[in-house]
Write a protein that binds this DNA or RNA. Structure first.
Length: 271
DNA sequence: GAATACCTGAGC
DNA sequence: GCTCAGGTATTC
């Protein structure tokens, strides 16, 4: 499941491989993942070159510029199973829904569940589509996050997943952050003191940074650009380990549902 | 603020 | 053949 670290790595890979190259063609065997028609997408992108790649939370925005100064901005959200491949010899299968040609370099968008979207937007950094999305989790300041989160009565896990508070955490890294901060997923932010909340934010940023460094987590579907899995999975402390031993205290990790999501935590360490 | 729709593959 | 997984938009 791509969350902020996986999206960051995809964005970096796209930037490294494609900046300076122009879109020369777009095909879409399944155009349902496009926010606009294939025709409109072609019209906006063909002939323009990739100038930079911007990430906000789990959203990527590819910014294009044309010869005559025209611009286009393609916002990508991979949701659950979206992948982008730029590999020599890659043969698209039935899950590849859109393929771009960048001056002869093929770029494929693959998405088993078709949840992801590639949408043309009007702005390269803060399009209207992101109005309801909070600041990026990696860079949000304590004061800003505190103002948005500290009064909330919902379980802290739900608040961390709420992209309107701060954007980027998904189910994996929320469970990991709360374990590292030693906070119970059902604890309510308004009942927690500032030192504890500060610890949660600090640990969330720490786990995101570390996961970026390790190429992200491959659990079900994530693979980088070249088809390689991320290797953060072996660093996971709780996610996917329900019923197994806590790596800190040796107790048994518990699996429950919080805010409608599968949740793993250590009842002894996170009290 | 909670339930539902969107999808498909994996694992019973 | 059924259930589960889950990010987000939408709807109650």
């Amino acid at each position: 499941m791509p969350e902020l670290p996986e999206v960051e790595n995809v964005g970096r890979a796209i930037a490294a491989a494609l900046i300076g190259r122009a879109v020369t063609g777009v095909k879409a065997p399944f155009s349902g993942v496009l926010g606009q028609s294939l025709r409109a997408t072609r019209k906006a992108l063909v002939g323009k070159q990739l100038a930079d790649v911007h990430r906000h939370g789990k959203y990527l925005i590819l910014n294009f510029t044309g010869e005559g100064g025209g611009e286009a901005h393609l916002m990508i959200h991979l949701r659950m199973t979206g992948q982008i491949f730029v590999m020599d010899g890659y043969v698209p299968d039935k899950h590849v829904h859109v393929s771009f040609d960048f001056d002869g370099v093929p770029v494929h968008y693959r998405d088993i569940r078709k949840f992801g979207r590639l949408v043309l937007v009007e702005d390269g950094r803060r399009p209207a589509a992101l109005d309801h999305v909070g600041p990026d989790m990696l860079t949000v300041r304590w004061s800003e996050w505190h103002a948005r989160a500290a009064h909330r009565a919902a379980p802290i896990k739900a608040v961390l997943l709420d992209q309107g508070v701060a954007a980027g955490l998904g189910n994996i890294y929320v469970d990991e952050s709360l374990f590292l901060a030693r906070v119970h997923p059902e604890a309510r932010p308004r009942d927690l003191d500032d030192a504890t909340l500060r610890e949660v934010l600090k640990r969330a940023k720490q786990v995101l940074r570390l996961a970026i460094k390790h190429g992200g987590t491959t659990f079900m579907n994530f693979a980088d650009f070249h088809g390689r899995p991320g290797n953060f999975r072996r660093k996971l402390r709780v996610y996917g380990r329900g019923g197994e031993d806590c790596r800190d205290c040796g107790g048994t990790l518990e699996k429950t549902v919080v805010g409608g999501r599968g949740t793993v935590f250590c009842p002894r360490c996170q009290s």
